[in-house]
């Protein structure tokens, strides 16, 4: 039984687990910006998780990287651009408003306006 406990404790302890106290910045403004950034950044080795909620080493490295850059005074945009240039657009949960993604963003408003005009024409006979 003791062996099991040992194994268990060892195993549990070896699991990284999302944000850790040591990572958190003392400057709350910077920390909030870091959180905001993280929510948009995908953990590339997980399933549909952002780096804040992920347990992986990869996510931990990125969390530390973001905070390091923030402390050095980089803007949010610069950090996102850097991550995209290194890992590709896959890393952002919110696709950039460029190229084919413009279609994705305008799809909803487009069918709304189109549908609305159709309704006005059909029912109100403007």
């Amino acid at each position: 039984m003791r062996f099991y406990y040992f194994f268990f404790i060892f195993f549990v302890a070896s699991q990284a687990f999302s944000i850790e106290p040591a990572e958190i910045l003392s400057d709350t403004k910077l920390e909030n910006r870091a959180r905001n950034l993280s929510s948009n950044i995908r953990c590339l080795v997980c399933q549909n998780e952002n780096i804040d909620s992920s347990d992986s080493e990869f996510a931990k490295d990125l969390r530390l990287f973001i905070r390091d850059k923030l402390v050095k005074g980089h803007t949010d945009d610069e950090i996102e651009k850097f991550l995209v240039s290194k890992y590709g657009t896959y890393i952002l949960f919110k696709p950039e408003f460029t190229g084919y993604n413009i279609f994705l963003y305008l799809f909803g408003p487009f069918i709304f306006i189109f549908g609305f005009i159709t309704i006005l024409f059909v029912f109100l006979r403007v």
């Binding site: 590709g88 657009t89 896959y90 890393i91 952002l92 919110k94």
Partner: peptide, 15 residues
Amino acid sequence: FDEQVSVGEPFYEVS
């Protein structure tokens, strides 16, 4: 396009 994009929570919130 043989490219990879992600669409997640922040996108749905905005749109």
